[in-house]
Structures are given as C-alpha cells and as structure tokens.
Design a protein around this nucleic acid. Structure first.
Lengths: 147, 147
DNA sequence: CTTAAATATATTGTGTGCGATATAATATTA
DNA sequence: TAATATTATATCGCACACAATATATTTAAG
C-alpha cells in the first residue's frame, strides 16, 4: 500500500490528536473556574488587553463570528463578561469584564503551572515545539494572504 | 500583569490554532472526496488495516463512541462504509469499506503531497515537530494510565 | 442456571468551529 | 444626498468532541 496514506506517516494526525488531548488536560482544571478552553482564551485576551471588540477577539484567537457570538453569550450568561453596543459605531459590540470576570483572574494564575507540569516535558523542547508551530502558522497565514 | 497568563506565552494556544488551521488546509482538498478530516482518518484506518470494530477505530484515532457512531452513520449514508453487527458477538459493530470506499483510495493518494506542499516547511522540521508531538502524547497517555 | 459484572455500542446534551447567509449601521460615490 | 458598497455582528445548518447515561450482549460467580 502507498506509504503516504499510512496513519503512522501522517504529520497532521499527531498534531490533531495532541491538540485534543491537551484540551482534555485543561478540562478538569478549567471546569473549576467554570470555563471551557476557548472561553479561557477569551479571558486571557480581556485580562491582558482590557475591553475588546468582538472582531478583535476573533482576530487574536483566529475564531469566526459564528463561533464567537454564541460563546460570548454563554460567558455573558455566566456573568463573566458584558456585551455592549458601541455608541460611536452601532455595528460594534464591545466585550468587557465584569467584576466577577476580573476576580476570576486570581483563580486562573495557577492554571499555566499545572498544565506545564502535566505536559511533563523539558522547557527547551516545549519552546522549540512552540516555535515550529508558530513558524508553520506564519507560513499558512502568509500564503493565504498571498494567494 | 502575571507573565504566565499572557496569550503570547501560552504554549498550547499555537498548538490549538495550528491544529484548526491545518484542518482548514485539508478542508477544500477533502471536500473533493466528500470527506471531512476525521472521516478521512477513518478511511486511512480502513484502507490500511481493513475491516475494524468501532472500538478499534476509536482506539487508533482517540475518538469516543459518542463522536464515532454518528460520524460512521454519515459515512454509511454516503455509501463509503458498511456497518454490520458481528454474528459472533452481537455487541460488536464491524466497519468495512464498500466498493466506493475502496475506490476512493485512488483519489486520496494525492492528498498527503498537497498538504505537505502547502505546509511549506522543511522535511526535517516537520519530522522533528511530529516527534515532539508524539513524545508529549506518550507522556500524557502514560501518566493517564499511571494515575 | 440465574444473577451480577463487564463490555460494546448508542443516545443525549452541551459546547465548539466554520461556511453561508442575513441584517443593520456606516462609509463611499455618483 | 440618494443609491451603493463595505463593515460588524448575528443566525443557521452541519459536523465534530466529549461527558454522562442507557441499552443490549456476553462473561463470570455462585
């Protein structure tokens, strides 16, 4: 059989599996904060950058509006964020943290440490891995804009 | 602000994003074969290993039955696979290829080449990346069975 | 041989993820 | 300025992904 179609020779399969497994690693930890992984990413953005437009969050996290709108509504239901139309431009929806959302950051401080520990891999390799991932991402994104 | 919670310092975020982007790379190519990425993985297993139990496919692809059952039913609708209860053990459902499913392999031969090209990264780095991904996966899986 | 435990798959519910389309508001242009 | 194009979200439909639960079948214990 053609070697190229063998599962073990697929490059993207371990990537696909690892991404899922890592999210599964986050799941029990984030459940403590009543967050899912993509919701956690939204919180990271808001904690770091402050109030953001929906489109800004989408741009930073590479998520479409069809994903973000319902996700943000669920976070609003949980009283972590506020969704407000911009008075300057009524098309824009500004996402900001509630007091609860701000407060949640304290509980989140320990999340990255726990994850790094359970990944159980040398910091060097983690860093190298991250860099290759980002390099491939850049390739993909630049070839998209070029095309 | 605590450095550890900054988006750019997250190791798992580029992994999560890259996995999605790579599936988006596959999407137009696999659409030609009327397959999604997880469905393509199922086909890889069947082409390589022949007929398999649902649980075997789940084990190989790290997918739960709640994901696989409806996915396999969609593939059955498209007349790519057959689902048959095992006469020896009525609990088991055996998944096998239809003639169409076997035929589809020819059209799939070119998929890996196209993907590798669009990833646009040196084979060495791809290989190194794959190895680290598999290493982390092994860590996660072994620590799960140990715990 | 009958009941309890284990196994294999199916079902349900919730939450992404994305393409396609719709809607409303703003910007542009004739 | 009225018509048109663009922009920002929202909505809808489909397909995962997984936890929790249900169902059917087989195996094991007594």
């Amino acid at each position: 059989m053609s070697e190229k179609l063998k599962l073990n020779n697929q490059v993207c399969f371990p990537l696909y599996t690892l991404a899922k497994e890592v999210i599964n690693l986050y799941r029990p930890i984030l459940t403590e904060l009543d967050l899912t992984y993509p919701q956690y990413l939204v919180m990271l953005v808001l904690w770091e950058e402050g109030a953001q437009k929906v489109s800004d969050i989408g741009c930073l996290l590479k998520l479409e509006t069809g994903t973000l709108t319902p996700l943000l509504k669920r976070m609003e239901q949980k009283n972590m964020i506020k969704r407000r139309r911009d008075v300057e431009d009524e098309r824009v929806v500004k996402i900001s943290l509630t007091d609860n959302g701000i407060e949640l950051k304290k509980k989140a401080e320990c999340v990255p440490v726990q994850i790094i520990q359970s990944l159980n891999i040398s910091p060097d390799k983690v860093q190298a891995f991250k860099e290759v991932a980002e390099e491939i991402l850049n390739h993909i994104n630049s070839s998209r804009t070029t095309a």
